[in-house]
Design a protein around this nucleic acid. Structure first.
Length: 841
RNA sequence: GCGAGAGUGGCGAAAUGGCAGACGCACCAGACUUAGGAUCUGGCGGGUAACCCCGUGGGGGUUCAAGUCCCCCCUCUCGCACCA
């Protein structure tokens, strides 16, 4: 490595030591100034930070530092999303205890973050795997259980036989287990769920109020929740004489009750919980059974394309609720079990999917709606899905659209065969994991009392440290000698502790409240109410767009629940959201498998933290993807090196630079100095507006580079004889530049700022542009002929049209362009442009 | 298929309807040097000796003036995707 351009290593170490000694970023509520809560998504302690983290935290730190300089009392905390699968895999592969693995990762990553010089209040650091954090997961769970918001139900889940565990959807890759590569199958299991669907309406409606969120994220959440209004309609099952049925009716969900008279069959999902019991145990049902089995197996293969619609007749018939017709019940692979009721009424004439299915299996197509302006055809070529006038629909014939839907639904409701219903695509949140490294779910299964919550006074239910990992899967807690067997808190009999742990998304659903509420927090509460109401909501949240749905939706849900429990002062946790783009290298996302990762540590060693931060902020706007370019990093490095060198030579010329006053300059400046002064104040204005509007840090930094270029040129040009004004302009210029730079490259800004006397003089605040300095003596006017640039001439900014026009007509190029032309009119924009509109004369 | 976003130099990118390409990278030339993969100075969209002409995915339109506003089309990225 060549010699450094400036001693960044010493500077960064010294400055960081001083921040630490001064507890510079430790905050408490109620200090002077309004509050500002700036938060970046906390990391999973995987072992090392990567460039995505560096980018995320550089953006957040720049915002936090900027707001601090603007006089806000800024909360800027950091912690660790410390539960999760990788810790257990490390335990299995390398025999390290998950707790030890996690702790050592945290220690290392914390060191890495500190080397970046991020202005965190480390006194609030939390790790979700610590009992004083996860006990509150358990406490909240008990509250939810009490409120009926946590419940158990049977559900179909991805199951890996070889690992003997449930897998989340995102852990299934092409139908195979991400860890062992064996096929995953669907299996029905009892699981804990949280009733997020109770909040679906709220979560969906309030998206509109989130004006500080990117439209993209709001749309993604809206599509994910996807409310849909329709009706539930009951179909009575024809009882086969031979036996009793598990239910007398099947209920369908439809958004098109107006097509009810066009129903020619009903389709049920193969996974439907009633189906097994509905099918008679007879040889005729063998095809149906084998169809179900096959479909379930195929389900797990995450095929890109839609599979062919397939189905089989169930052998059962239903009664149409209004016509009394006999309707066959089919089993179809295209029916989604977990949406609506898992049963759909099929109207082949008016639904494309039903149409395809009916054509394939020769089922009747019965048209009952005629859209305006269309002819009635004897044979349909595809489904007619538009609204229209009903016919062959009993007393409802002649009605149309919403009117027909309302009338039919009302009639069904009156006769007790149906009702209006709003359904959501969003499903309840399954939170059980058959895993060790997570929060134990605080309930006890008692043979006589059923499910008994662990009494609050017994919290936390601690994860036992002595655990044995076989690598064969299944929850290690289930094999623990003493964890599982416990007395029932209710009857004292022998009970069994729940051995499932919670989804780690629970941990990240309220950590932002803990950071705020941990200040003066009473022992028996998760938060200090005073601290919480002072700091919340988060004013600026920053993280990757990959969390646009899951984490952000869960966090919004959880915050609402806590609000309803009187524990959170706010319903929406994040006032404004910034989703930063990915860090790419060679056109694709950095990943170990592609071998295109850039190691932050190595970069910091080579160029220093300031350079690394500056480059990531400069090279692209925060919300766009950032293409990593080793060469371009050197550009940022050179800028800082040049700045350092220029300040050095400033001291050579003016050894007293650090102690001179740069208050108001009352005397007149030379024309050159005056231009430099304008540039200084224009830069203040530019950087400020760039930061206020969508954190456009790339252009803000470009502005700083321009200012340095201007100052450098002025400095290198020793023609000016007015030493005192020259010194004044240069010193105030560098002081301003360093203040404006400090959110982005804080170490060098602090160090050079100290040398230039910023520290002692209390100039910590963000500079304010001086309106008088913004007025330039002359500005360039663009002279156009028919909209084409012909000259650029300088005039005072308030020059009148006649003045500019006269000047323009003396310009050689303009004269040439106007020769032989008649001027029809002139367009004049003061301070900017003069356009001659001409035609040949 | 539905929804959202984006197409500008060799590259990352800038541009309240008013000089297209700020700033940076790469490249070229020069200076300093035993040396340059360091640093400094200058140049740098295309065509052209020059005057000028052309140029923001393509086509039309509005305007004195369009990367920016309106209409049509193409391409790419992301999200959802049999949700009844």
């Amino acid at each position: 490595m060549s010699d450094p351009l400036y001693p960044f290593s010493e500077i960064e170490q010294t400055v960081q030591r001083r921040w630490k000694e001064d507890s510079a970023y430790h905050v408490r509520r109620s200090e002077s100034g309004p509050k500002y809560y700036c938060l970046e998504m906390f990391p999973y302690p995987s072992g090392r930070i990567h460039m995505g983290h560096v980018r995320n935290y550089s953006i957040g730190d720049a915002i936090a530092r900027y707001k601090r300089m603007r006089g806000f009392n800024v909360l800027h905390p950091m912690g660790w999303d410390a539960f999760g699968l990788p810790a257990e895999n490390a335990a299995i592969l390398r025999g390290v205890h998950p707790a030890d693995w996690t702790e050592s990762n945290i220690a290392h990553m914390k060191e890495q973050l500190q080397k970046l010089g991020l202005s965190y209040d480390w006194s609030r650091e939390i790790a979700t795997c610590h009992p004083d954090y996860y006990r509150w997961n358990q406490w909240f769970f008990l509250k939810l259980l009490e409120k009926g918001l946590a419940y158990r139900k049977e559900a179909l889940l991805n199951w890996c036989d070889s690992c003997a565990t449930v897998l989340a959807n995102e852990q299934v890759e092409d139908g195979l287990c991400w860890r062992c590569g064996n096929p995953v199958r669907l299996r029905t299991m009892e699981q804990w769920f949280l009733r997020i669907t109770d909040y679906a309406e709220d979560l969906s409606k309030d998206l509109e109020s989130l004006e500080g969120w990117p439209e993209r994220v709001r749309t993604m959440q809206a599509n994910w929740i996807a409310p849909s209004t329709g009706a539930l309609i009951d179909f009575r099952i024809e009882p086969p004489s031979s036996r009793a049925l598990p239910s007398e009716i099947l209920t369908v969900f439809t958004t098109r009750p107006d097509t009810l008279f066009g129903v020619t069959f009903v389709t049920i999902a193969p996974e439907h919980p009633l189906l097994e019991a509905l099918l008679e145990d007879s040889p005729e049902n063998l095809p149906a059974r084998s169809f179900i089995e096959q479909t379930l197996r195929a389900r797990t293969h995450h095929n890109r394309e839609e599979p062919e619609k397939e189905g089989v007749f169930s052998g059962l018939f239903l009664r149409h609720p209004l016509t009394g017709d006999r309707i066959p019940l089919w089993i179809g692979n295209f029916v989604v079990a977990s949406y609506g009721t898992g049963v759909v009424m099929a109207v082949p004439a008016h639904d494309q999917r039903d149409y395809e299915f009916a054509r394939k299996y020769g089922l009747p197509v019965r048209q009952v709606i005629l859209p305006p302006g269309q002819e009635r055809l004897s044979v349909l070529e595809k489904a007619i899905t538009d609204d229209g006038i009903l016919f062959d629909s009993g007393s409802f014939s002649g009605l149309a659209g919403d009117e027909a839907r309302t009338a039919i639904t009302a009639h069904l409701e009156m006769t007790g065969q149906g009702r209006m219903k709003k359904t959501y695509r969003l499903r309840d949140w399954g939170i059980s994991r058959q895993r060790y490294w997570g929060t134990p779910i605080p309930v006890i299964h008692c043979p006589s009392c059923g499910i008994v919550p662990v009494p609050e006074s017994d919290l936390p239910v601690l994860l036992p440290r002595d655990i044995h990992f076989t690598g064969k899967g299944g929850s290690p807690l289930a094999d623990h000698p003493s964890f599982k067997g416990v007395p029932c808190p209710s009857c004292g009999g022998i009970g069994q502790r729940e051995t499932d742990t919670m989804d780690t998304f629970i941990d990240s659903s309220w950590y932002f409240l803990r950071f705020a509420g941990i200040e003066d927090c009473p022992q028996d509460r998760p938060f200090s109410p005073e601290a919480l109401s002072y700091w919340t909501p988060v004013d600026q949240y920053i993280g990757g767009v990959e969390h646009a749905i899951l984490h952000l939706l869960y966090a919004r849900f959880f915050t609402r629940v806590l609000f309803d429990l009187g524990l959170s002062p706010v319903r929406e946790p994040f006032r404004t959201l910034l989703t930063q783009g990915m860090v790419l290298k060679d056109g694709s996302k950095m990943s170990k498998s592609k071998g295109n990762v850039v190691d932050p540590d190595q970069l910091i060693n080579e160029y220093g933290a300031d350079t690394v931060r500056l480059f990531t902020l400069f090279s692209a706007p925060p919300d766009k993807d950032l293409s990593w370019d080793d060469k371009a990093v050197e550009g940022a490095y050179r800028f800082l090196g040049r700045l350092y060198g220029r300040v050095d030579s400033l001291f050579e010329e003016f050894p007293e630079a650090g102690s001179i006053e740069t208050g108001t300059w009352k005397e007149s400046l030379s024309p050159e100095a005056s231009v430099v002064r304008s540039k200084i104040h224009e830069t203040i204005r530019k950087v400020t507006t760039d930061l206020e509007n969508n954190a456009q840090m790339n252009t803000a930094i470009a502005g700083l580079m321009e200012l340095l270029n201007t100052l450098s040129n002025f400095q290198g040009n020793a023609l000016s004889e007015e030493t005192e004004s020259r010194r004044w302009v240069l010193v105030s210029g560098y002081r301003t530049l360093l203040l404006l730079l400090s959110p982005f490259a804080p170490h060098i800004a602090q160090h050079l700022g100290d040398r230039l006397g910023l520290g002692q003089r209390g100039h910590h605040g963000w500079p304010v542009p001086d309106d008088r300095a913004l007025i330039r003596a002359t500005v360039p006017f663009v002279i156009q002929v028919n909209g084409k640039l012909r000259a650029t001439l300088t005039f005072p900014p308030d020059a009148r049209e006649e003045t500019v026009s006269e000047g323009a007509r003396e310009d050689e190029r303009v004269v040439r362009a106007l020769a032989g032309q008649t001027i029809l009119k002139t367009i004049f924009v003061p301070g900017k442009i003069l356009n001659f509109v001409v035609r040949p004369s």
